[in-house]
Design a protein around this nucleic acid. Structure first.
Length: 537
DNA sequence: TGTATGCCCGTCTTCCTCAT
DNA sequence: ATGAGGAAGACGGGCATACA
């Protein structure tokens, strides 16, 4: 095992010494995430203060841990478990007295990650305010890296990147940029997940075997805390620990691992999008920035995973701009390439008219120039269409880039995220229908007449909507004949709340549509006999 | 799978013809 | 002169296809 990855619930304890993160830590992952998850951490802190020691709600998160020493105390808080483990192995002569920056060459002592966090906090000379310490249980070597974890980490990495870029402090720092001179626990270099399976635990680079022998080693490495907030209310915390090669550890990391380009990291995704969209590089140029990947792989990955991100997000956010503003359309009309095509097309059209007096007469007289004219028209339309699509993509990207920052900023400032969907494009009948059908009431306490009345009104609204927007397949088949006259045998009559009778002639082709919308009255009528009788009270 | 292109369809506007 | 109705054209959007 080359990387030890840990899943950790937000196990927050009140730190003994909790200095405020230094300003230079603003770029690091844990710094940002500790700020973003502030509310959840506060809640967890309060919860922890009132939590009974037998609370075992978090024990299920430590899956795949077959180590008896870690699974025996199921009723114990993982934080306390880690704390106890660290306390057992704590050597009072090593940590607090030694600056972290001078310790990389020191022999790794037995410490949990909690101690690593504490050790980092000792670097700051500022007075302590609050800083969550993270308790982590390192899994045994039997913990295998599966595809699900890979995907989860990928999602978390995307979230992490968004969080980091969303702070808007110009900290778009390359993760490969060396900045690890002070914080051994905040090494930012994110290593690409290796797909190589753990074939031989004995050859693992992580000295977990020390657990079994009772001696706990202290591990130096990279710590990445990510928050996956796209699952809804409760964010999921992912803690990834990547041990560093140490002179005291078996030198397994010394060999050069061949790049197994199976998964794209968030950095690669960001770079690919930037080169393609911002810098408009050709694919051959882009390929030079991705050694080990071929052009087709990059194209496919970009097209399938990256390009339509904005569009897919658009479907989840009705407040996103739906159409280009008129001003933007006017700007597109000023595009020189489009104007050139338009002039060319118009010139050809004038020539046709000058010769045949009418373009259609030219089509009858000689189809060849007219077809050429049509092709020119198509070119103009295609160019305009492409410019509109590009402008829309740009607009979407701009919108989602800022809406993400806004949400993160609101989280940071403790402002509840409010969602105000743009409902201007929703038909009024649809709104009334939604209000009518989602009253969320107990039918046992509502009078039958009221229910029937609502049902009639619902049918009216559905008919109004249907007349407004008839489904295309039915448009040629359905003939609405709404009349104020009462026919001899009305096939379908409704009495509305406005006391006006509405009579509809309902052809048989109308039934499938009503069936699809779940109209029980129509279904009942269909089951009983034809024509449909609406059983109003 | 993305992109370019062509084709088709629906909608709207403009122009022309004809009846009043 | 004016309004109604039809024809023609412009335009946008969707779909299919070929190609890379």
């Amino acid at each position: 095992m080359e990387t030890s990855q840990l899943l950790c619930t937000p196990c927050v304890t009140t730190p003994l010494s909790a200095p405020e993160p230094a300003p230079e830590q603003a770029n690091c992952v844990s710094s940002n995430l500790s700020v973003v998850g502030e509310f959840q951490q506060e809640l967890a802190k309060r919860k922890l203060s009132t939590m009974e020691p037998s609370d075992s709600s978090d024990s299920g998160d430590y899956e795949g841990d077959s180590e008896p020493s870690q699974t025996s105390n199921l009723g114990e808080n993982p934080c306390s478990r880690a704390n106890k483990a660290s306390e057992r192995a704590e050597d009072p002569s090593t940590i607090e007295d030694t600056p972290a920056t001078s310790r990389p060459s020191s022999p790794p002592t037995a410490r949990s990650k909690l101690k690593c966090s504490r050790a980092r906090t000792t670097l700051s000379s500022k007075p302590p305010v609050r800083y969550p310490s993270i308790a982590v249980v390192i899994p045994s070597t039997s913990w295998k890296q599966g595809p699900a974890r890979t995907s989860t980490r990928a999602a978390a990495a995307v979230c992490k990147k968004r969080l980091r870029s969303g702070r808007g402090t110009g900290d778009h720092q390359d993760e490969n940029t060396p900045n690890d001179t002070e914080q051994p626990c905040q090494k930012r270099k994110k290593r690409r997940p290796s797909i190589r399976p753990l074939s031989d635990p004995l050859k693992s680079s992580v000295p977990i075997s020390s657990h079994r022998s009772g001696a706990i080693q202290r591990l130096h490495g990279s710590a990445i805390l990510t928050v996956e907030s796209n699952t809804g209310l409760k964010p999921a915390y992912f803690f990834t620990f990547v041990p560093d090669p140490s002179p005291m550890l078996p030198p397994v990391h010394t060999e050069v691992i061949p790049p197994l380009k199976h998964t794209y990291t968030s950095d690669e995704n960001a770079l690919l999008v930037r080169l393609k969209e911002k810098e408009a590089m050709s694919w051959s140029e882009i390929t030079t920035h991705f050694p080990g990947r071929n052009m087709s792989s990059l194209q496919v990955h970009y097209s399938t995973k990256l390009r339509h991100k904005a569009g897919s997000r658009l479907t989840r956010d009705a407040s996103a701009p739906q159409h280009l503003p008129e001003q933007e359309k006017e700007c597109i009309e000023m595009n020189p390439e489009l104007n050139k095509l338009k002039i060319e097309c118009n010139t050809f059209r004038h020539e046709l008219i000058a010769e045949y007096h009418q373009s259609t007469k030219a089509r009858k007289a000689d189809p060849t120039p007219y077809d050429q004219y049509r092709r020119l028209q198509d070119q103009v339309r295609a160019k305009r269409k492409k410019l509109h699509m590009d402008a829309k993509d740009k607009m979407y990207d701009n919108f989602f880039e800022h809406v993400g920052n806004r949400i993160i900023d609101q989280n940071y400032q403790g402002i509840p995220v409010e969602f105000e969907p743009n409902t201007s494009h929703i038909q009024p009948e649809r709104k009334v229908l939604a209000d009518l059908e989602f009253k969320n009431r107990d039918v046992d306490t509502v009078d039958d007449a009221e229910l029937v009345e609502d049902r009639i009104r619902s049918l009216e609204l559905r008919l109004e909507l249907h007349q407004r927007n008839i489904p295309k397949p039915l448009r040629k088949r359905v003939k609405f004949e709404a009349t104020t006259k009462k026919p001899d045998q009305p096939p379908f009559m409704m009495k509305s709340s406005t006391e006006s009778n509405i009579v509809f002639t309902m052809p048989s082709s109308f039934l499938p549509y009503f069936l699809t919308v779940g109209n029980r009255a129509v279904q009942d009528g269909r089951r009983s006999s034809s024509p449909i009788q609406f059983g109003a009270a």
